[in-house]
Design a protein around this nucleic acid. Structure first.
Lengths: 205, 205
DNA sequence: TCGTAATGTAAGTGACACTAACATATGTTA
DNA sequence: TAACATATGTTAGTGTCACTTACATTACGA
């Protein structure tokens, strides 16, 4: 038996904006079902086209997912930079803000977040993703440097930034993987972030 | 065309130890191809049985993977406890050792490690996995408490243990996801672990 | 020794990723 | 405006997969 392949009735034969809409459908499905349970077929159903249509726009499933991951990287990056603004330069508050936003993104869009990092950089084309991640890391490094009153990033700054990143990254994954249900997760995330920041970068002043 | 379903010639009709061998095949494949690209069929080929055989031993694919994940949890836990022994009670060295082993496991068996944590605790049966993780966390908490000269775990210890755990967990994932190729990853992992330990738990004394 | 449960196979179902051949629209240029 | 190349869609496949059903073989306890 054939599955209903339902290309929905459409005004014109051509869709108009299929590529964009497929990406959006992919994003939604990744969020709803998780990156593993995403299927191209379902995205097609949602976009109202045949299952062969995506292959005029993407080489394969992976390329669709990569688009979503890249968009997520950019979104998270933008959010981080945005939350930086209200706080004075060189203050711990900025470090805390970066961490808070990082985690907020992870818990708000767990599917996309997992997608962003689940790639082992296998393919060559993942270079773009890698660079986007690099960019975010640079922001953290700069902020750490500023906390030390520097305008250039030293090796020490890099190391500290790396600590902070690892911490929020780990915290994010533990959260979305549901490993913190009980009393494991400290009640007050804000306090925890401040605590860590205090332990790694110097007090403002 | 039918795929070669090759149940390999076997002495007896019955396999003898299929369940165990399927789990081992699953573990290998998860490591070789990653948890996502694991297929039951391939495990069957490797074990030399028909593709229907596993379903006499496991409810579904997921249950096979869960076995592998649980075994990994136990393996990692054992390694952590083992590396604890050489170091004096209540010393930072013990904290460092725990972190080192955690990360070593992740980088040595990235497939299994990812499997262990990629589950969102969706199903009820995941309770076992959760408990195993809990157990490991308890060890860390106890060690932190000991560093403070306590024999009971306080809320402060829990919070600190959580920090340490998040950090090594994040570091592990960043490593296996290949996000640290460049100069991001501090050259000396050992120094980094000591650094973190120093910032979170008090010096031995 | 006989019957039952445990454990294997063959064959089939529907979902999926992806392809080839063909259909329809769009835009460019003569 | 006509003609053609190209972009973008569909239909109808192929092979793989997870999982099921019905049946075959074996192990083992009463």
């Amino acid at each position: 038996m054939k599955t209903d392949n339902i290309p929905q009735k459409r005004e014109s034969y051509h869709h108009g904006d299929l590529r964009t809409q497929l990406i959006e459908a992919t994003r939604q499905l990744v969020e709803e079902k998780g990156p593993d349970n995403f299927s191209v077929s379902e995205a097609c159903r949602r976009a109202g086209v045949s299952t062969a249509a995506p292959y005029k726009h993407f080489k394969h499933k992976t390329e669709m997912l990569r688009e979503v991951a890249a968009a997520g990287m950019i979104r998270q990056s933008e959010q981080m930079v945005a939350e930086l603004a209200p706080h004075p330069e060189g203050s711990q508050a900025r470090i805390v803000a970066l961490g808070r936003v990082y985690i907020r993104f992870a818990t708000t869009e767990p599917g996309v977040f997992r997608l962003m990092f689940t790639w082992s950089g296998e393919t060559d084309e993942d270079g773009k993703l890698y660079d986007l991640g690099d960019q975010k890391f640079s922001v953290v490094q700069m902020e750490v440097a500023k906390c030390h009153g520097r305008s250039e990033v030293t090796e020490e700054d890099r190391q500290k930034a790396f600590m902070l990143w690892s911490f929020v990254h780990g915290l994010s994954f533990l959260s979305i993987d549901g490993k913190l249900s009980d009393g494991k997760m400290p009640a007050d995330l804000e306090k925890l972030l401040e605590d860590i920041a205090r332990r790694v970068v110097p007090e403002a002043g």
